[in-house]
C-alpha cells in the first residue's frame, strides 16, 4: 500500500468512527447524570431507518438528521420517564427498548429497504485540505465528521470546565449532596438524558445518510454497534477524550482487520473480525489496573514521593463510574 492510500484510509477510519463518537458522547452525558440508557443498540437502528425514511420522502438530509435526533430523544425520554417517574428499573426498560426498537426498525423499514436516497457529501476545507498528510486525513471529511471532532471538545469543555457541567457530575455522583446545593436533580436528569439521547440519535443518520448510506434492514451491519458504544463509554471512563480515543481505537482495529486479512491467509477471517473486541477488553483491564489491591499494596512499599506520582497517574487512568448511575433519587 502506498502512502497516500494509507492516509485516505486513515481518513476513512475517522469518518467511520464519527457515528460511534456521537453515540458515545451522548451516552457519556446521560450516564454522567446518572441515567443508564441501555436502549442504544435498538435506538441507533431505529434512528438510522427513520432518518433515512424522512430524508427519502422529503429529499432533505437536514430533516433526516433532525428526525434522527428526535428519535434518540424520544427513546431516552421513555427510559427516563419509566425510571425516574415510574421508578422502574433502568436496566430492564433499556434492555427491552433495545430489542423493541431493533425489531421495529426492521419491520417499519421494510418498504424503503434498498432504495437509493439522498446522502451528505464530502466537504473538503479549502486551504487546509492542501496540507500534506494532515489535509488528507483530517480535512477531506463530511460535515458530521468535522462536527464529531468539535463535539468531543465541546463535551469535554462542558463537563469539566463549566458550572453546569460540574453540577452534572455532581448529580451522577451524589444526588443528595447536589440537591442540598440547589440542583433540581430529577429535572436535570431528564434534561441530560434527553439531550444525550438526541446526540446519540444522530449516530443513526450518520450511518444511513453517509457512512453506510441507505437502509438495508438486517444486513445493514448496524446491529451490535450500540452495545459497543456502551462498552466504549465505560472504556472512556466517562471522559470525552478517552471515549474518543476508544472510538478511534475500535475503528482502527476494525480497519486493521480488513487490511491484514489478505496478507495473513493462515488466520481465519473471523479471528481478525472479532479481534477488536478482546483487544478492547484488555485495554479496559489495563486502564483500571490501579484499582487492584495488589497494585495498591506494592505501591505502599515505594518511597512516598514516587508513590504519589504513580498514584496520580493511576488515578488519572482509572475509570470509576458515576456513583449514582442507575440509582433513582428521592429526597429523604
Amino acid at each position: 500500500m502506498n502512502n497516500s492510500a494509507l492516509f485516505v484510509s486513515l481518513g476513512g477510519v475517522l469518518a467511520s468512527a464519527a457515528p460511534v463518537l456521537f453515540a458515545v458522547i451522548g451516552e457519556t452525558i446521560s450516564e454522567r447524570a446518572g441515567v443508564l440508557n441501555l436502549s442504544m443498540n435498538g435506538m441507533i437502528l431505529l434512528s438510522a431507518m427513520g432518518s433515512f425514511a424522512v430524508a427519502l420522502s422529503t429529499g432533505s438530509v437536514v430533516l433526516g438528521f433532525l428526525a434522527g435526533a428526535l428519535i434518540g430523544a424520544l427513546v431516552s425520554l421513555v427510559v427516563v420517564f419509566a425510571s425516574l417517574t415510574l421508578l422502574q428499573s433502568q436496566v430492564a426498560v433499556g434492555f427491552v427498548l433495545a430489542l423493541l426498537c431493533r425489531d421495529l426498525s426492521y419491520f417499519l423499514g421494510s418498504p424503503i429497504m434498498g432504495q437509493v436516497g439522498p446522502r451528505i457529501s464530502q466537504l473538503p476545507i479549502p486551504g487546509l485540505e492542501q496540507i500534506p498528510v494532515l489535509g488528507t486525513i483530517l480535512f477531506r471529511q463530511d460535515m458530521m465528521t468535522y462536527l464529531s471532532f468539535i463535539l468531543v471538545i465541546l463535551a469535554w469543555f462542558f463537563i469539566f470546565k463549566t458550572r453546569p457541567g460540574l453540577t452534572l457530575r455532581g448529580i451522577g455522583e451524589r444526588p443528595a449532596a447536589a440537591f442540598v446545593r440547589g440542583a433540581n436533580v430529577n429535572r436535570l436528569r431528564y434534561l441530560y438524558a434527553v439531550l444525550g439521547g438526541a446526540i446519540a440519535g444522530l449516530a443513526g443518520p450518520i450511518y444511513s445518510l453517509s457512512v453506510k448510506a441507505g437502509w438495508k434492514g438486517t444486513i445493514s451491519g448496524l446491529d451490535g454497534i450500540g452495545w459497543i458504544v456502551l462498552s466504549i463509554t465505560i472504556f472512556g471512563g466517562w471522559k470525552p477524550f478517552r471515549a474518543a480515543f476508544g472510538a478511534y481505537l475500535f475503528a482502527f482495529l476494525q480497519w486493521l482487520g480488513l487490511v491484514l486479512q489478505p496478507s495473513l491467509p493462515s488466520v481465519p477471517s473471523q479471528v481478525l473480525q472479532v479481534a477488536p473486541f478482546p483487544l478492547m477488553i484488555l485495554t479496559l483491564l489495563f486502564v483500571n489496573i490501579g484499582n487492584a489491591e495488589w497494585v495498591e499494596r506494592s505501591l505502599a512499599r515505594l518511597p512516598e514521593n514516587v508513590r504519589r506520582d504513580i498514584a496520580k497517574v493511576l488515578r488519572a487512568m482509572n475509570a470509576t463510574p458515576p456513583a449514582a448511575l442507575g440509582v433513582p433519587f428521592e429526597k429523604e
Binding site: T162, R163, L166, T167, E173, R174, A178, V180, A183, T320
Partner: peptide, 23 residues
C-alpha cells in the same frame, strides 16, 4: 459530610455556588 468524594476539593467547593458559566 454531604460532599462529592471523587471530585477535587476545589470543584467540591465551587459546586452549588452561583456565578459565571465558567467558574
Amino acid at each position: 459530610p454531604l460532599d462529592f468524594p471523587p471530585l477535587k476539593v476545589i470543584d467540591d467547593f465551587i459546586l452549588g455556588s452561583k456565578g459565571n458559566l465558567i467558574p
